[in-house]
Design a binder for these strands. Sequence first.
DNA 1: TGACATTATGTCAGATTTGCCATATTCTAA
DNA 2: TTAGAATATGGCAAATCTGACATAATGTCA
Lengths: 102, 102
Amino acid sequence: MDSKKRKKLEAKGWVFGDAADFLSLTPEEARLIDLKLALRASIKEERMKQNITQEELAKAMGSSQSRIAKMERGDPAVSVDLLLRALMALGMSNKQISKIIA
Amino acid sequence: MDSKKRKKLEAKGWVFGDAADFLSLTPEEARLIDLKLALRASIKEERMKQNITQEELAKAMGSSQSRIAKMERGDPAVSVDLLLRALMALGMSNKQISKIIA
DNA sequence: TGACATTATGTCAGATTTGCCATATTCTAA
DNA sequence: TTAGAATATGGCAAATCTGACATAATGTCA
């Protein structure tokens, strides 16, 4: 809904943490943002741990390096679907993924 | 990727279960479908339990009745994002949601 | 320093997803 | 049965998301 505003703020260096409610975000929207944040962090962390480049991860999941970069960097225009695909491509089990969310 | 094919099959009454790999789905795609299936089921279940109509849930999350119907019915063109928003609008905690995924 | 690998940023057309509307179908109780 | 509530289906324009590409910025190591 407020992706424009959000994008604008993030363009200026903002990073969203636990309380992203200074915009007119519904609680659900805020929760979803925080959830994405957690997923993104895990992707980067796991990729690093496996010593895989963004390029390699991209190929493994049929995406592109630039999208991975955006994903890890925090572009709001990245769906949960894509984040989950990345985690799965990294070999994460549902159990592991669920731990990130909880 | 194969959403066309998938949609076509589902239009004919197919419902996807654990092994949706008879199409050329990557393992990640198949896992994502199964995950969506679980989320959808939980939404319907929880909505029923709370005695809420699709109309009411729709309003609570800023969507529409028809989309909720599609969501619960299994329209492949529903993002995980939307499913999560629904679960959140139903008052589910992250912990509860994570249990669905695991 | 320079060459090279990796990651970041900007852009875009095509694909997907969205809310919404109309309407059909199914369900429920009198 | 019939009315009315609830759900399902079809369709659409607008919004969002996507992979891809070019290119810039950053890191790394000799």
